[in-house]
């Protein structure tokens, strides 16, 4: 690589880098909310409505349930947003990641796994039945997509020969990974939607269980959780660009604008597809996950492994 410093904390200093990356994460979340609103309700009110809703939640009185597990509940409400921000640490911003290690992709996956714990706790905390059912649905759904997601992440690392995000971006200088890894790309995006229990994977927060995991949330905590979901979706779109769409690579324009452009495009695709598919029942999706997605992602990994052996990515 021409640029040897891959960590923005090393290049700009720790505090400025953390602030910039956190702001970018929030901006990505806001961007996703706007794109989502535009797709659902049209351009009118797409900007205003989320702001009004956030303000309403900030001043809303907190609702309480009898005998909640307050500690775990509060912890979980904050954790969703914190984990979404932490996964941003390995997503490239202006060609550098906040934290560049030899295991970036595993870090991203570990934050997602912690999201399991957080969302289940979110369901557990209020001591309410719908909420708990939602938490269990999230886990059941997780059993379906966790393995395919891991294979998808590994496939990108396999093609690049490194688990470092900036290394994966650099490996796509000749050809974007989406060309040889279309299945991994789709599975990655679908799993991101599932981790944010959004779109077709929103059963954990479904209307049939009165809002599920988020049913008892109110005020600031609800705002934190909703913001965490949006930030995670935004961050995942940016990560998908880095892993499969060549990061900031593109002609004429500077790197960051290509990256932003591609990220918005991925968000549009995600929203356009996700808002058209009805909510999937977790028990049905589990079978699809194990009978279709696991074999497909395994074959995908095999194809990439053979391409690596044949020197395709060299």
């Amino acid at each position: 690589m021409t640029d040897s410093v891959t960590s923005s904390a090393a290049a700009w200093g720790v505090l400025p880098a953390v602030v910039v990356v956190a702001l970018v994460a929030v901006a990505l979340g806001a961007l996703f909310v706007v794109v989502d609103r535009v797709a659902v309700t049209g351009v009118r009110g797409a900007l205003g409505a989320p702001v009004v809703e956030a303000g309403r939640l900030l001043v809303q009185q907190r609702r309480v349930t009898p005998a909640p597990d307050r500690l775990l509940w509060r912890l979980a409400s904050a954790a969703v947003l914190v984990l979404a921000m932490l996964s941003m640490a390995v997503v490239p911003v202006a060609g550098r990641t906040l934290w560049s290690t030899t295991a970036d992709l595993v870090w991203f996956n570990a934050m997602e796994a912690l999201m399991w714990a957080a969302v289940w706790l979110l369901g557990w905390g209020p001591n309410a039945v719908h909420s708990l059912v939602g938490g269990y649905r999230f886990l059941a759904q997780g059993l379906a997509y966790e393995l395919p997601l891991m294979f998808a992440l590994i496939t990108a690392g396999l093609g690049a020969g490194t688990l470092r995000t900036t290394g994966v971006v650099a490996a796509q200088r000749e050809l974007w990974f989406v060309v040889t890894m279309p299945a991994a790309f789709v599975v990655f995006l679908a799993s991101a939607a599932a981790f944010a229990f959004w779109g077709p994977f929103s059963a954990p927060a479904g209307d049939d269980i009165a809002g599920g995991v988020v049913s008892e949330l109110s005020g600031v905590e609800r705002l934190l959780v909703e913001a965490g979901r949006a930030v995670f979706l935004g961050v995942s779109a940016a990560m998908a660009v880095a892993l499969f769409l060549g990061g900031g690579a593109g002609p004429w324009l500077p790197d960051w604008s290509w990256q932003l452009l591609k990220t918005v495009l991925v968000m549009l695709v995600l929203v356009a597809a996700g808002r058209r598919v009805p909510t999937l029942r977790p028990d049905r999706y589990v079978e699809v996950g194990w009978m279709v997605l696991v074999p497909v992602t395994l074959v995908q990994a095999l194809v990439v492994a053979l391409l690596v052996l044949s020197g395709w990515y060299a």
Binding site: A103, V106, A113, W116, L139
Partner: peptide, 19 residues
């Protein structure tokens, strides 16, 4: 780093399934 992150990943999944 790798051992640390894998420990966090595996143990989280394990604890959630255990719960």
């Amino acid at each position: 780093v790798y051992v640390a992150v894998v420990t966090a990943l595996m143990m989280t999944i394990e604890m959630v399934v255990m719960a």
